[in-house]
């Protein structure tokens, strides 16, 4: 958690990234940027999914629809913030010549998305049956 606090400080003092260590090969920075953008697209897809649940499933009960929608939107927002945090940590690690940070977030996110998918499947099947 101290690592998170440190990188959070860096968010608000961007000049300090450049103070750390030495500039890595530009290709590594660009690869890190593309990974960041892939996470942002994941976040945007989750936010879009939240919109889609709210707009295209009007037959769901209000609570279920809003619950699913808010869960997807929250996951999207979390994913976007975490994308910046991870990008900063990777950039710092590369500048200092350390190992890249590992993270359990991808596992967590895939479990959450899988859970939402199963819930949706059950809802659709029950809707057909009922």
């Amino acid at each position: 958690m101290t690592g998170f606090a440190r990188s959070l400080r860096l968010w608000f003092a961007p000049g300090r990234i450049g103070d750390e260590g030495e500039t890595p090969d530009y290709r590594f920075s660009l690869a890190n940027e593309r990974t960041f953008l892939a996470w942002i697209r994941t976040a945007l897809a989750l936010v879009g999914g939240g919109f889609a649940v709210d707009q295209f499933l009007p037959d769901l009960r209000w609570g279920v629809r809003i619950g699913l929608s808010v869960a997807l939107l929250a996951a999207g927002a979390l994913c976007a913030l975490r994308a910046v945090n991870h990008w900063v940590r990777c950039e710092l690690a590369m500048r200092r010549g350390e190992d890249l940070p590992v993270s359990g977030f991808p596992t967590l996110l895939s479990l959450a998305v899988g859970l939402v998918a199963v819930v949706m499947l059950i809802i659709v099947l029950l809707g057909r049956a009922g």
């Binding site: 860096l10 968010w11 961007p14 990234i17 500039t23 530009y26 920075s29 660009l30 890190n32 940027e33 960041f36 953008l37 942002i40 976040a43 976007a80 913030l81 994308a83 910046v84 990008w87 900063v88 950039e91």
Partner: peptide, 12 residues
């Protein structure tokens, strides 16, 4: 040059 931090934060 590497992406500036402000760009990353603005995107998120």
């Amino acid at each position: 040059r590497a992406l500036p931090l402000s760009g990353a934060v603005a995107t998120a």
